[in-house]
C-alpha cells in the first residue's frame, strides 16, 4: 500500500475562548515533501504549526507521525519525533548568551543533567563561523544576543532549527526581517532539506517564495483549508488568482 506520511493531521480543531482558530483541518506532509502554507493574517497558520510542535493541544482531531497516532503531544515529544521549528516570534531569550539560545530546551548534558558546556560552546562557535556567518571577533558563543540585529536573531533561530537534523522542519515566516541575500540563502536551505530527503512546512506571506520552494501549497482561510494544489498543477498567476478569490468569497469556486 501507500507509504505513510511524515505527518498527518485529521480533523483538527482549536478554539481560544470565543475565537475558533482552526476548524476541521486536514493536513498531510509526505516523507520528502515541502508543503507551503498560505493564508491571511489570522488565518490560523501559526496556531496550526503550534499544534504540530506540541505547544497547543487540539480540542479535537488526530495527529499522526509516520503512521503512528500520537496522543498528548508535547514540545519535547515532538522534538524527539524529529520536529524542529522556526517560530514566527523567534522564541529567543534576549539577555542570554548565544549558546544558551541555540541549545535552548535541549542542552547537551552529561551525567545527572550537568551541562557539557565545552561541547556546547564549541558547537556554537562552529555554527557561528559556519552557517551563521558571523565573522566579527566581537561576537562569541558567550555573547548575549540582545545586541544582535533583527536578521542576525532570525539567523540564530534558523540555524538552531537546522542544527538538530530534524525530519520535519517547520518555518513560520522565516524570511521576516531578512535581507535579499539572506533570504536567498534561506530558500536554498529549504531546497537542501528537500534534497536531504527530509520534509518541511514553509509559511511565508511572500507567495513567490512559497511557490519557489514548495512541492504542494495549502491555502488556509479563516481557520479552514480552502484549497490544496500540487505546484505542477498550476502556474503562479493561477495561484494568485485563486488566493484573491478565496480572500473575497471564502471559497475556491
Amino acid at each position: 500500500m501507500e507509504q505513510p506520511y511524515r505527518l498527518e493531521l485529521r480533523n483538527v480543531s482549536k478554539s481560544f475562548g470565543e475565537v475558533q482558530s482552526l476548524r476541521n483541518v486536514d493536513l498531510r506532509v509526505g516523507m520528502n515533501e515541502v508543503v507551503g502554507l498560505l493564508g491571511d493574517n489570522g488565518a490560523g497558520k501559526s496556531t496550526l504549526i503550534k499544534i504540530i510542535t506540541g505547544y497547543h493541544q487540539p480540542d479535537s482531531g488526530e495527529i499522526i507521525f509516520a503512521g503512528q497516532k500520537v496522543d498528548n503531544l508535547t514540545v519535547a515529544k515532538a522534538r524527539a519525533l524529529g520536529v524542529e521549528t522556526v517560530y514566527q516570534e523567534r522564541a529567543l531569550a534576549d539577555q542570554q548568551t548565544l549558546w544558551r539560545n541555540i541549545f535552548m530546551g535541549r542542552e547537551i548534558t552529561g551525567r545527572f543533567g550537568f551541562l557539557n558546556t565545552k561541547q556546547i560552546r564549541a558547537e556554537t562557535e562552529r555554527l557561528m563561523r559556519g552557517e551563521l556567518g558571523f565573522t566579527s571577533s566581537a561576537v562569541s558563543a558567550s555573547s548575549e544576543i540582545v545586541g544582535f540585529s533583527g536578521g542576525e536573531k532570525q539567523g540564530v533561530a534558523i540555524v538552531r532549527a537546522l542544527y538538530f537534523q530534524a525530519e520535519l522542519i517547520i518555518l513560520d515566516e522565516p524570511t521576516m526581517g531578512l535581507a535579499l541575500s539572506e533570504t536567498r540563502k534561506l530558500l536554498n536551505f529549504v531546497r537542501d532539506i528537500k534534497r536531504a530527503g527530509k520534509s518541511a512546512i514553509f509559511i511565508d506571506h511572500n507567495v513567490f517564495h512559497v511557490f519557489d520552494v514548495a512541492d504542494r501549497i495549502v491555502l488556509l482561510d479563516r481557520g479552514a483549508v480552502a484549497g490544496e494544489f500540487r505546484k505542477d498543477e498550476l502556474t503562479l498567476d493561477q495561484l494568485l488568482e485563486k488566493m484573491h478569490h478565496v480572500a473575497e468569497t471564502g471559497s475556491l469556486d
Binding site: V75, A93, M104, G105, R106
Partner: peptide, 10 residues
Amino acid sequence: DNENSARLMG
C-alpha cells in the same frame, strides 16, 4: 528571560 520562548522550545 522569556517564559514563552522557553515553553515553545520544550
